[in-house]
């Protein structure tokens, strides 16, 4: 287990029927970095995200998450097919049955990986603050009896959850909207609320799917500084998909470029800017042509 890399993706393959959406995608994400996954439309960026966060079951390869002082295999917790050796080894068999019955993408989140969605998925008919309280479900007092009797331990746990929710509202500048319905917020506010909600699950790595889509330049600027806050003050590793090249180049330490389901380049922003393969993928241009990023 490597402490340096929080996420290790190796030979990730994803097929939808005959379509090969991802082909041997391999990359590592360093702990405490801001990394970006870029590529032209249809390159497979969101597919990678869905595999990482457990919404798709990868066809092949391995995804290892080193968070919470243990190593989690994302592919395994989603529930795998039985193998011949399971019928000899009862422990392995029991584990596979467990993940088959109760496994799923929620275990990936519990292991320390949170995500946001390209098309915002908030609980629209619940208030902003309740959205953040739902995200803390795993850390609050969930006992039925103490909740119904409204005991002191239940009240304390709710109060702590509320404090944490208001903390994150302050970070994303939404405190005054705490008692509004999430669906009533403007687009930019909804994007920020979704990030706050993911952060309420105490992740070690957060995956943002096009966080700047639909934001104006000043909102994008604010978002970039917020992402730095996540990394610097909360030790959260950030992995993002983004089309806004200005922002990507500005905040990322490491960039992975995908095209047609394959990694065509990996490296720091400067390497990527001058990589001829990347330029060709984006512009379909002849090599040597200048690209303004």
């Amino acid at each position: 287990m490597s402490q340096e890399n929080i996420l290790e993706v190796e030979n990730l393959v994803m097929h939808f029927g005959g379509i090969k959406a991802l082909n041997d995608v391999t990359f590592n994400i360093k702990r405490g970095s801001v990394s970006a996954l870029i590529g032209p439309n249809g390159a497979g960026k969101t597919t990678v995200f869905n595999c990482l966060t457990g919404f798709y079951k990868a066809t092949g390869g391995s995804i290892l998450l080193n968070a919470g002082n243990k190593q989690t295999s994302v592919v395994k917790v989603l529930g795998e097919k039985f193998k011949g050796s399971d019928f000899i080894n009862p422990a392995a068999f029991a584990e596979r049955v467990k993940y088959k019955m109760f496994g799923g993408s929620h275990l990936v989140n519990r292991a320390g990986l949170a995500r946001t969605f390209q098309n915002i998925r908030l609980f629209k008919e619940m208030s902003v603050i309740e959205n953040l309280l739902v995200a803390q479900h795993m850390s609050v007092q969930r006992s039925m009896i103490s909740g119904i009797l409204n005991t002191a331990s239940f009240k304390n746990s709710e109060e702590a959850a509320l404090r944490k929710a208001f903390y994150w509202l302050e970070v994303v500048h939404l405190t005054e909207f705490a008692n509004r319905l999430a669906g009533e917020l403007s687009y930019g506010q909804q994007r920020r609320l979704e990030i706050a909600r993911s952060m309420c699950t105490n992740p070690e790595i957060i995956c943002l799917d096009e966080p700047a889509a639909g934001l104006n330049p000043s909102e994008t600027e604010a978002l970039a500084s917020m992402i730095r806050v996540l990394r610097d003050e909360h030790n959260t590793t950030v992995l993002l998909i983004e089309h806004d090249m200005g922002m990507v180049m500005n905040i990322s330490d490491y960039i992975v470029v995908l095209d047609h389901g394959e990694v065509i380049a990996k490296g720091g922003p400067d390497d990527i800017k001058s990589n001829p393969k990347v330029i060709a993928a984006y512009l379909g241009a002849e090599e040597g042509e200048e690209v303004s990023l």
């Binding site: 919404f55 799923g104 275990l107 995500r115 969605f117 739902v134 479900h137």
Partner: peptide
């Protein structure tokens, strides 16, 4: 709250660690 969140968006619920 989890029930209502589930009614609103099941996929978001899963992404937040709710079984």
């Amino acid at each position: 709250r989890a029930w209502e969140a589930l009614r609103e968006d099941e996929i978001a619920c899963r992404s937040l660690g709710l079984n």
